[in-house]
């Protein structure tokens, strides 16, 4: 079982961007918008986070600027969807295409390179060590020694819960998704809450994306490789509840970490490994819909 510990440790690292993207997606989902742009927003965050860190020399500043750029993209997405009344799915697709095009174009413009860009000179993610916790066997091995951003994201999950379920804003946002006329008939604009939800997903994806590249110290084209889509599935499988999101993210994080391990340890073609997230997501979706269908039907 010794091989399992590093897998579990790295699954914590892998699940964090997933969890962050899913958290932001939860806000848009509950406000009544299917946000498939998580993929593009993550990619935007991944690219901007690392290049701003590189240019400013400061990781905090770089991540903040990266988040800002990602929020700008999500604001465009929200404005086009809500103010110009476009189909949210197609604008989400547009966001994904835009992000993948823009990152390559800018990478070519700035570094003359359309492939992997390695940043040697940037600081590595600050690792938080809590000695007392590290003493606990197994638990310590898995949960200790991650970057500070990872613990921050867990904190954000708690914040996310409080905002959604313990504030007037959260109630109104959920009302926008459940019955928008209940809001508008009282003089509140449901689209205002949806707009803010898009901005929140820009924020979390900006952070989550930055973790992807900063962890690697390099930008790889299409580094997100379907993570935004999986985040969407995490939201559905997590039953649209913060705690459910955490559990689903852990499961997917582990699956991803395991496939990385398999690629190295077992001799499986790389294409198959790359296909695992999609196949896994597909199976999870099918399982979930078979379960829902069996629960919600007539006896005959």
């Amino acid at each position: 079982m010794q091989f399992l510990l590093p897998i579990l440790h790295s699954s914590v690292t892998i699940m964090t961007p997933l969890l962050l993207a899913a958290m932001g997606g939860l806000f848009t989902e509950l406000s009544g918008m299917l946000n498939i742009a998580l993929e593009g927003l993550l990619l935007m965050g991944a690219f901007c986070g690392i290049i701003f860190t590189y240019f400013t020399g400061s990781m905090v500043l770089g991540v903040l600027l990266g988040i800002l750029c990602t929020m700008l993209l999500s604001a465009i997405l929200a404005a086009v969807t809500l103010n110009l009344r476009s189909n949210v799915f197609i604008t989400g697709l547009a966001t994904n295409l835009f992000a993948s095009g823009l990152t390559v174009v800018l990478s070519f413009k700035l570094f003359g390179n359309k492939g992997v860009v390695v940043f040697d000179s940037i600081p590595s993610l600050p690792v938080l060590r809590i000695p007392a916790l590290a003493q606990i066997p197994v638990f310590g091995d898995i949960f200790i020694g991650h970057s500070a951003f990872i613990y921050l994201s867990w904190l954000l999950l708690a914040v996310c819960y409080v905002v959604l379920y313990k504030t007037p804003f959260g109630f109104r946002l959920r009302a926008a998704g459940l019955h928008q006329k209940a809001l508008s008939s009282l003089g509140m604009d449901p689209n205002r809450y949806r707009f803010i939800a898009f901005l929140i997903s820009g924020f979390t994806c900006g952070l989550g994306g930055a973790l992807l590249t900063l962890n690697l110290g390099a930008f790889v084209p299409n580094i997100t490789a379907g993570k935004g889509w999986i985040a969407l599935v995490v939201i559905f499988l997590g039953n649209k509840k913060p705690l459910g999101l955490l559990i689903a993210a852990v499961v997917f994080g582990f699956a991803d970490a395991f496939s990385n391990y398999a690629q190295g340890a077992l001799n499986v073609p790389a294409d198959f490994i790359l296909a695992i997230p999609y196949v896994f997501t597909l199976l999870a979706m099918l399982g979930f819909s078979i379960y829902s269908k069996s629960k919600d039907s007539f006896e005959s």
Partner: peptide, 22 residues
């Protein structure tokens, strides 16, 4: 310039093509 500007233009179309306002 690089070929990917095509996908940026294409995304522009996607952004706007279903707009009820336009």
């Amino acid at each position: 310039v690089t070929f990917e500007i095509a996908s940026i233009v294409q995304s522009l179309v996607f952004f706007l093509v279903t707009s009820a306002v336009l």
